Computed example of a mutant assay.
Amino acid sequence: MNIAPTSTHNKALGYILWIFGFTGAHRFYFGKPATGILWFCTAGLFLIGWIVDLFLIPGMDRKADARYTSGPYEYSTAWILLTFLGIFGVHRFYQGKWISGLLYLISGGGFLIGVVYDFCTLNSQLDELNRKS
C-alpha cells in the first residue's frame, strides 16, 4: 500500500507566486533555489521558462510535498511572510528565531542579504524545525 505524503506546500499559492514567476518566486517556494536564481537573473528564462512552468507547477508541488516534512510550522505561511514582510524579519519571528528576527528588523532584512539567503533556504529551515517537533 502506497501512502501519499502529507501536503506541505499549497498549489494555489504556487500559482499566485507564478504570477511573479519571472522573479523565480514559485521556484524558490517549491524548493528549487538554483533555478529560482536562474529565473530571477534571466526574467523567467526569457519568459519562456515562466510560461512552461504554468504546466509544471503540479509536479513541483508533488515533489515538494514528498521532500519536506509537515509539522507545526506551515510552509505557505512562512513563505507569505518572507515574500511580503521579509525585510522586517516576520518569517524569522514565526519560526521562533527571535534574535535573527530582531536583527532583520533593525537592518532591513540583513541589508537584503539575509532575505536572499532565506529565499534559498527557507524550506530547509522549516523542514528541520518540523522534524525536531
Rank of each mutant, 00 (worst) to 15 (best):
A25S: 14
K11V: 13
H9T: 09
T8D: 11
F46N: 06
I16E: 08
N10I: 02
L45V: 15
W18I: 04
A34Y: 14
G31L: 14
Y117F: 08
C120M: 03
A43Y: 09
N2V: 13
Q125H: 05
L85R: 10
P5D: 06
S133H: 10
F28R: 07
L112T: 06
F22M: 15
A4C: 00
T8F: 11
G89S: 08
A66S: 10
P58G: 03
L38A: 13
S124I: 00
I3F: 14
G24M: 06
I3Q: 13
L56N: 11
F40E: 01
L85K: 07
I106S: 02
V115S: 05
F88H: 04
G110N: 01
P5R: 07
I37Y: 02
L85S: 14
S107V: 00
Y15L: 14
I19L: 15
W79V: 05
A12T: 14
I57L: 12
G108Q: 07
A25V: 02
V115L: 09
G71F: 08
D65A: 11
L45Q: 01
Y15M: 13
Y75I: 09
Y104Q: 03
G108D: 05
N10H: 13
L129P: 02
Y73W: 10
G71K: 07
I19W: 07
S7F: 04
T42F: 14
G21P: 01
V116H: 01
T42Q: 07
W39A: 10
F28M: 07
N2D: 10
T23W: 07
Q95Y: 11
G110M: 00
A4Y: 02
T23M: 12
N10G: 08
Y68S: 10
D127N: 14
T77F: 11
P72D: 08
T77H: 13
N2F: 12
N130T: 03
A25I: 02
Y75T: 05
Y75W: 15
Y29M: 11
M60T: 04
G86Q: 08
I19M: 13
S107E: 00
A25H: 05
G71P: 09
V90P: 03
L17Q: 04
F40Q: 05
W98F: 13
T77K: 13
G36W: 08
D65Q: 11
G14N: 05
L85F: 12
F55T: 12
T6Q: 15
T42R: 09
D65N: 12
T42V: 05
S100Q: 11
E74R: 15
F119V: 00
F22Q: 03
Q125D: 07
A12C: 06
T42S: 15
L13R: 02
A25R: 02
T8E: 12
P33C: 14
L47Q: 11
I99F: 14
L129Q: 04
G108C: 08
G71V: 04
F30C: 09
L45I: 10
Y117C: 00
I48P: 11
C120T: 00
G14A: 06
T77S: 15
G24S: 10
F22Y: 14
L129V: 01
L17H: 09
S124N: 13
E74I: 04
D118H: 03
Y104S: 03
H26K: 06
W98L: 15
Y117V: 00
W50S: 00
G114R: 00
P72Y: 01
H26R: 08
F30T: 06
G14D: 04
T77Y: 12
G86Y: 06
S70H: 14
